[in-house]
Amino acid sequence: MSHPARTRRFLTVLLAGAGVMHFARPAPFDSIVPPVLPGRARSYTYASGVAELAVAGLLAAPATRRLGGAASVALFVAVFPANVQMAWDSRHASAVQRAIAVGRLPLQGVLVAQGLSVARDGAPASR
């Protein structure tokens, strides 16, 4: 399997799994919705879960791979404030919890780069 295919498959599985978890166990996602956002945190949790599942579907289908890559970049940028909120909220937590929360911040940049790679190189495979 080529590098672009592995990257696309990784993002597809990551986003599908995260999307499902937004519905199966929404409370941890609710807790990182920035409180400055209007409305109920659960609404944002469900909306981001739907977005993650939709983007995973775009990445999985050969005809929409490039769009899926671009959509994943937009999604990773859109959810970054929740990761910042998680890091902020962990400031009084254990060292391990802080390291995980703060460590997620630069990883978001890696995910954006992977999404850009899929958007650039994700042309449908020729048959």
Rank of each mutant, 00 (worst) to 15 (best):
A101R: 05
V112W: 02
M1P: 12
A60N: 05
A16G: 06
G68C: 11
P34Y: 13
R40I: 06
A56C: 01
D30Y: 07
G68Y: 04
R42M: 10
V77S: 11
R120I: 04
R120T: 02
P62G: 10
S31L: 11
F23L: 06
V13P: 08
V13E: 10
Y46D: 08
R40A: 15
V20R: 01
S94R: 12
G115R: 02
L11M: 15
A87E: 05
V112M: 03
P34H: 11
T64G: 14
A63K: 04
V77W: 13
G19E: 03
G19F: 12
L111A: 05
Y46I: 07
L15C: 06
A47S: 02
A41C: 05
L67T: 13
P38K: 04
V118R: 07
V77T: 09
P81F: 14
P38I: 01
S31Q: 15
V50A: 13
D89I: 06
V33E: 00
R91G: 07
A119T: 01
A95D: 13
A41V: 05
G115H: 09
S48F: 12
H92F: 13
L111D: 05
V55P: 10
A61I: 09
N83F: 09
V33H: 06
S126F: 06
F29M: 00
V84P: 02
S72E: 08
S90F: 01
A18D: 00
L111S: 08
Q97P: 00
S31F: 13
P26A: 09
M1Y: 00
Q97A: 13
A78D: 05
A24F: 04
A87T: 06
V79Q: 07
G19A: 12
F80W: 14
V84I: 12
A27H: 10
Q85N: 08
W88N: 09
S2R: 07
A71P: 03
A54M: 13
F29A: 03
V55L: 14
G103I: 03
P26L: 13
A60E: 01
L107K: 03
P81V: 12
W88L: 15
A119S: 03
A99I: 08
A95N: 05
Y46N: 00
V96K: 15
L105Q: 03
Q114A: 13
R40M: 10
G115C: 07
A125Y: 14
P62A: 11
Y46M: 02
L105T: 00
V102F: 14
G57T: 03
L59H: 01
L105K: 00
R91N: 02
R98F: 14
F76V: 04
G68H: 12
A123N: 10
A99C: 11
